[in-house]
Write a protein that binds this DNA or RNA. Structure first.
Lengths: 338, 338
DNA sequence: CTGAAAGCGCTAACAC
DNA sequence: GTGTTAGCGCTTTCAG
């Protein structure tokens, strides 16, 4: 304000009024101030404003996902939504170190963030973060605190979607090959899998846990098709890496996908799903939607709304060739169609 | 300061001195202030401090890499380095939209950032960003401005590393399968490839450009091994996806990797390189090192140093089975050994 | 319609 | 040693 006021030869209060749409003043004066402001490249100091209105128009986002696979799409969508409202986002990575986490929080608190978003590589429960008074949202992450708001994908519903898709395709012997059972997501997806099977009168199914790798997908196929016992006619995999590994192993054995065995993956991670042979049908957790929702809720909370509990957003089925032979051979076209 | 001062029954200036190590005052007084501060959860307001010292301890990072593949590791390392110095990072995504970019810059300028880092999905030249006076660094990105500081991986050197590795393994007919030539990285790596070949007296080589996909890797193998002409005994690929596609296609044809054809990829993208069969030898651009360097340089620039020009950081060769049959069969062990 | 002044929370310079 | 004060850049209230 300083310079503008001086150069426009008005009082500092007048200049202030001119800059915000707020104050009523002569057209002429306003224009003069605006012109001078432009000339000298004047830009209001947000820090000073914040100090005054004790709201920094700033939020923090704390992540523990060092690869960014899951958190990056969320962060992006969140940032976009918030930017539309003039709110900037501090990015902090704690890489699962509680000390670093605390340090980041302290710093953010010093900067008087208006809110905090916590995200992670996996959606399991974690210790709540203690910040006095400011709103906190956990996205793709949850806290052991009933008063926290947690936004998560509906893993169980996603699994149901996958399995019902396979059943709809006429498959009856659907195995579930997934990650370590200590992940809540694994347990939830398993539940969805079972629910869908039962609903179709298909019994208990076949549940195999391993790690999240392609390697495990290949091994699982080796186990399932070792000769003894009934072989599945469909695989619902816990992520796209497992699914891809499984698809490759089936291919190696000369088992046709999807003709003999249909596959559905999870994550809809494009580099995996589209490059696999055949391209993978997959469940999309709609991470950007989670991010946007987090942005919206955070804005509401900053405005005073109080929401708590766990909210799960729906997943989506993206069909590609690994389950549906009628899909175009060309995985590229596929993507655009989506 | 307010409350602390009141509750500790000292003057506001005294309280201030107690909080910073700065001022000289009685042990007793300092302790009293500190105690009260702790009690009431007092936390100095960074905004107010910033206003005073006209330095916000805040920088902006502007990215156009919507997948975060390249920028995320950079951002993380940068953030870590800066956090150590008490500087927080605003994350802004512009997704290649100049208008959004401008909007973000304006917002950051309003927040009085002390510096700006610009990063991207590809390292090609881009229009310079106009900000008055504050330091700007381009990482994995460069500006058409000789006064800018740009930090990039040494693509050419990386290519030399790859090709010399292959030559050292006794390979003589090394083809280069890479991405679109409009990428500067493609041109530089091609140059490194040629330089290494020439140095070994191996002639012009065989250069194939396509897109960055696995699909293209497979197609390239189809072209190279279609029967006519001499077939290569090694492939240097422009990224790990191409390399993986090539490895798969060779496998399909019953051509042994690395025995008949050795492969080196680029990016050392773990999910690709380690899951491929065989796991891929690859060139690592050391993105985190780029991020750290950016942090360091930015701190120096904020402190007054002026540096300009293009600085390229070395790449590293990571050997796996696709070029070296002696490597353990187990790709997991490999990783840990690294 | 415009100018003056107080105060947001903090620091630094100076007085006591 | 400790307290006071001016001012960082801005907004808002209240006089003029």
């Amino acid at each position: 304000m300083r310079d503008v006021a001086r150069l426009a030869e008005v009082s500092i209060g007048t200049a202030s009024k001119a800059m915000n749409a707020g104050g009523r003043l002569r057209q002429e004066t306003r224009e003069k101030v605006m012109r001078v402001a432009k000339e000298i490249g004047y830009r209001p100091n947000d820090l000073a404003q914040s100090l005054h209105r004790s709201r920094s128009r700033t939020v923090g986002i704390l992540t523990n996902d060092s690869f960014g696979r899951f958190s990056f799409p969320i962060i992006q969508a969140l940032e976009e939504r918030l930017a539309d409202h003039g709110i900037a986002v501090f990015m902090c990575n704690a890489t699962d170190d509680p000390a670093r986490e605390r340090q980041h929080i302290d710093q953010l608190l010093g900067k008087r963030i208006d809110g905090l978003v916590v995200t992670a590589r996996r959606s399991d429960e974690r210790p709540a973060i203690l910040v006095g008074g400011i709103p906190v949202i956990y996205v793709f992450s949850q806290a052991d605190d009933p008063d926290a708001l947690c936004l998560l994908p509906d893993d169980e519903g996603g699994a149901v979607l996958a399995v019902e898709h396979l059943i709809g395709l006429g498959r009856r012997r659907i195995a579930h090959v997934t990650g370590p059972e200590r992940f809540e997501a694994v347990r939830l997806r398993h539940r969805g899998y079972q629910r869908a099977l039962e609903r179709a009168g298909l019994g208990g199914g076949h549940f195999l846990t391993g790690d999240w790798s392609e390697q495990w997908g290949r091994e699982a196929v080796a186990q399932l098709f070792s000769g003894k016992g009934e072989t599945p006619d469909a695989l619902f995999c816990g992520n796209d890496q497992i699914a891809r590994g499984a698809a490759e192993a089936l291919r190696d054995r000369g088992i046709a996908v999807p003709k003999d065995v249909a596959i559905v993956g999870f994550d809809n991670w494009l580099v995996m799903a589209e490059a696999a042979r055949p391209p993978l049908t997959s469940i999309d957790m709609n991470l950007p939607a989670l991010g946007r929702e987090a942005g919206e809720r955070l804005l509401a909370m900053i405005a005073g709304e109080r929401v708590t509990g766990v909210k799960r957003l729906p997943c989506t089925l993206v069909v590609r060739q690994s389950s549906d032979p009628d899909r175009s051979e060309n995985s590229r076209l596929e993507t655009k169609a989506k």
